[in-house]
Design a protein around this nucleic acid. Structure first.
Lengths: 328, 328
DNA sequence: TTGAAAGCGCTAACAG
DNA sequence: CTGTTAGCGCTTTCAA
């Protein structure tokens, strides 16, 4: 049945089901009591009218928000240009469909802990999904946001974490490099301020030490440009390096480009591995060996957790699986 | 001034400014009359209280929506996985920040024109941004959505179009290929059902005919997998092909991969050009020659147009600029 | 188990 | 130019 012009309201449903608006509300929202009979009649009416609650009205009455903020911290506004961020937003926006909310993208300047406070002021905010979460940020979660924040990355007592098993993934990569005969394995890390990236570094360190191999670290920032530069730095400092593990595919691709520019063959002279398995990793040549991470599902889970508002496990870990291609 | 606990409402502002709620509303919303004096007092109160309108309440009163739907048509739900779609959603989500709306991502099954109607039923919808717009879709815009739809691609009398100059971009590419000595230029197109892709095909056809060169078309679908396959088909049908223009970078990258697998050198034997300039086009090797398109700004413009609700030009064209790298 | 009634915060006629 | 008066559609006590 196509509604004529004005979409059905709860009143229409109540009238058709011959119950009060309150009862209809309870049934539709799935909250509170209702006799099976009433429940059934309301259900039928909803179907017949093609009724869908008005998100704005609902949000207003519940004094809840209508916007799910994806907040990305970083030094400059450019962090928003990352395809990874787009992926997160895309997945969150798809996850929003069943809920009365939509996604807004925000930049959280790294050294402005009050930024999140300003986001919280906005009564339109249903919740926040943090990307590139830092410790200071977790310490500065505004009280108003309690229970409506999730983090893609590190979490805290009050902020559930949805993240990939960084340490496990990094171990797999390093072990793979080692197993294929590499011994001078360098690592291009994430930015210093991002502590979840630290877990991969820890794993790398542990393995290298255990094997009695040298630890060679260069700080990166997840960009391709940085990878290209890092390649030069690495070669200058440790000319005998025979493998590079970059904690971002983009960076790894940059490393490969940089290496090649100076005549180094990949993987012949130096093996290169990345992290994340972005779509392009499969297409580059050589194909990039990396760890595959379900970014979409992670983002969807975080978004759903916030939207549902129910308590969730403090940490939800997603698997990191090694993808062997030809670069390493 | 940090608000104590409960964020300020319009009533608080009105009280502090010593005007009626209506006057305060008029000033804040920038609609209707108000004496300079009143205006000033309200402004001050807003500042002092850190007042921000409640989007849900506003949407409810105006009976407007709170969600900006990015609707992507395609054969299967997989179209949503495209990085291009993510880019559009990301830009739209950033553009939403100043408005009381958030982005939701929807799939419009290709052969279900009623799908958009269902989206329109939802009173929570502020507007729709169409991606991969088809003619049948434009013909089936529900009346309820009139004036709140924009298209990234082809438009119509009632739906403004925000798009790149496809024909111009394609011409540049083909001319570049021709100028660099290629004469057996094949093209991997977009899917048949997508007519805006047709404009690039038209441009290609025109140039080839004018130059007395053979037209060689293979249908694609914007994916890398298709590109890989297309490479084989091309070579089988027209072994002397010396250049391929794919209307998608992903496809072009696939073509390169496919070509290489069969021992063909790029750009030595066959030059390959793409379209869009995705982030990875710069990183592949050889670097992909392509046309750069401001997807972010296009999406932001479309989103803003819908959100503003003001009439806009029927067609807003964005430039396509040739980016010469090494693949062609 | 149900319904009546009172808002949630804002906008929009319509008198003054 | 300004204030009064009704709602927008839904949730939620509180009695019945």
């Amino acid at each position: 049945m196509t509604s004529p012009h004005r979409p059905a309201t709860l009143d229409d449903v109540a009238r058709l089901a011959d119950v009060s608006r309150s009862t209809a509300s309870r049934v539709v929202a799935g909250t509170g009591f209702a006799s099976p009979a009433a429940r059934e009649r309301v259900r039928a009416a909803v179907d017949r009218l093609g009724y869908a609650p008005n998100p704005a009205a609902r949000a207003l009455a519940r004094s809840a928000g209508v916007r799910l903020v994806v907040a990305v911290s970083g030094a400059t506004r450019d962090v928003l240009d990352d395809p990874y961020v787009d992926r997160v937003v895309g997945a969150a926006a798809a996850a929003c469909a069943p809920y009365p909310a939509g996604v807004v993208l925000h930049w959280l300047p790294l050294h402005d802990p009050a930024a999140l406070g300003r986001v919280a002021e906005d009564r339109g905010v249903a919740g926040v999904v943090l990307v590139n979460t830092t410790e200071p940020l977790l310490d500065a979660i505004p009280a108003r946001l309690r229970g409506r924040v999730a983090s893609i990355g590190i979490g805290s007592a009050t902020v559930p974490s949805f993240d990939v098993d960084n340490a496990g993934g990094a171990s797999q990569i390093v072990h793979h490099l080692y197993a294929s005969g590499r011994r001078r394995i360098a690592m291009v890390t994430g930015p210093r301020w991002l502590s979840c990236a630290g877990r991969s570094v820890g794993a790398y360190r542990r393995i290298m030490r255990a094997a009695g191999l040298p630890v060679r670290l260069v700080t990166g920032d997840f960009t391709a440009a940085r990878g290209r530069a890092a390649a030069g730095e690495l070669l200058a400092r440790w000319p005998d390096t025979d493998a590079v593990f970059a904690v971002s595919d983009l960076t790894a691709l940059g490393v490969i480009a940089g290496l090649r520019e100076t005549g180094v063959r990949v993987p012949g002279d130096v093996a290169v591995a990345g992290f994340d398995d972005i779509p392009h990793a499969a297409l580059s040549s050589p194909g990039l060996t990396t760890a595959s991470h379900p970014v979409g599902p992670i983002a969807a889970a975080a978004a759903t957790a916030v939207l549902e508002g129910r308590p969730v496990a403090p940490v939800t870990s997603f698997p990191s699986t090694l993808v062997r291609r030809t670069s390493a």
